[in-house]
Design a protein around this nucleic acid. Structure first.
Length: 103
DNA sequence: ATTCTTACA
DNA sequence: TGTAAGTA
């Protein structure tokens, strides 16, 4: 049985844990939020709580920054990459549905 | 005891 | 950039 702790969207990681796992500074993670790429959940006291999905996005952003992009550009690029991936999936599903209906 | 967040200077 | 005050 699936637990909410298995959900990639469950906000399980504190700032220091997330930064440690990714090998980045806390400030980098925070700036990804300012750049509109991440919207981490908050604890009752206002501390950021990152999900595995947040971590995956942050990791990709780090890669893009490493290629020389500034932070704002990296946030935009990763955001667009994510949207393209989502649209590709949606297109594939739509095509599969068409194939089934026209069979 | 230390880290994290916001606010403000 | 740095400090302060409240959290976790």
């Amino acid at each position: 049985m699936a637990s909410i702790f298995d959900d990639a969207n469950y906000p399980a990681y504190t700032m220091s844990t997330a930064a440690g796992l990714l090998g980045v500074q806390p400030g980098f993670l925070r700036s990804l939020g300012d750049g509109g790429l991440l919207h981490p959940a908050r604890s009752d006291g206002g501390h950021r709580r990152y999900s595995r999905h947040d971590l995956a996005m942050a990791e990709r952003a780090r890669q893009v920054v490493d290629t020389g992009m500034n932070l704002a550009a990296a946030c935009r690029i990763v955001q667009l990459e994510y949207e393209v991936a989502r649209l590709e999936l949606e297109l594939a599903q739509a095509r599969a549905q068409i194939a089934e209906l026209t069979a």
